[in-house]
């Protein structure tokens, strides 16, 4: 089949929504879930296409008619009160606000207080060695800058909460979520032999990551309970002073 004919066939398939739905019915044998990236949602129903082919895309660059002057999505506020207890006190009042997300800030209520013992990563990574030498930069619209997984703020809700840290003094809540197995955060926990658990109960390893994100883990022989700040360059953690 010539390339031109193949292109024409593809354009016919994409002419309209019904045509697209028909294409979907044939797609399952060609596509796996990996190609879907992080598009979520259930499968759609297929209807029989009947609309004629639409003309090819216009020239003059790209067309995004609905995207002008749209503000970026903001971090959802407030967060539903956590089920688990915070720092030993009772549940946080419902008016407590989601913690401020700031790409330049980490450590939550303990910001700037991590001057304690450095617990070196057993893998002894050099600078960005864990990332094949590639500098890791946070992506601001994702929880933890994407360090713990590709979790856009738009998709995170109370239903996905995995505990939280409550700052009663500043009346802020720092939510936590389950990390993705293939994320840099998962690499970190694996290196230290830590197992993630829900934040909230006392005597846990509390690791503060990029953008004021936080996850918790059970202590082990290498890492005792307490607050730690992550150094993403070497995947090293530093304890609070």
């Amino acid at each position: 089949m010539s390339g031109a004919l193949r292109s024409v066939i593809a354009l016919v398939l994409m002419a309209s929504a019904p045509a697209a739905a028909l294409a979907q019915s044939h797609a399952s044998s060609h596509v796996s879930s990996g190609a879907a990236g992080h598009v979520s949602g259930g499968g759609g129903r297929v209807s029989t296409p009947s609309a004629p082919a639409a003309p090819p895309a216009q020239s003059h660059g790209f067309s995004f008619p609905n995207e002008s002057n749209v503000r970026p999505i903001a971090v959802p506020r407030p967060v539903a009160p956590p089920v688990s207890i915070g720092t030993g006190a009772s549940h946080a009042p419902t008016k407590y606000m989601h913690s401020p997300v700031n790409g330049n800030v980490t450590g939550g209520p303990y910001h700037g207080q991590f001057h304690g013992r450095v617990i070196y990563n057993p893998r002894r990574w050099g600078g960005w060695g864990w990332n094949r030498g590639i500098h890791w930069y946070p992506a601001p619209i994702y929880w933890g800058g994407g360090f713990w997984g590709p979790f856009g703020f738009s998709g995170l809700g109370a239903g996905l909460l995995f505990g939280s840290i409550i700052d009663y003094q500043d009346q802020a809540i720092y939510p936590s979520y389950q990390i993705e197995p293939s994320s840099p955060g998962a690499e970190l926990l694996q290196n230290y032999g830590l197992q993630q658990t829900e934040c909230g109960p006392p005597n846990l390893v509390v690791i503060w990551g990029p953008d004021n994100s936080v996850i918790c883990a059970y202590p082990n022989d290498l890492v005792g309970a307490g607050n730690y700040e992550l150094d993403p360059t070497t995947l090293t953690i530093v304890s609070q002073s």
């Binding site: 593809a10 929504a17 797609a27 060609h30 190609a35 598009v39 949602g41 499968g43 759609g44």
Partner: peptide, 14 residues
């Protein structure tokens, strides 16, 4: 309207 997962399958095939 095509749902997200359906769109992804269609898009990948196309």
């Amino acid at each position: 309207p095509i749902r997200p997962r359906a769109y992804a399958l269609f898009a990948a095939f196309a």
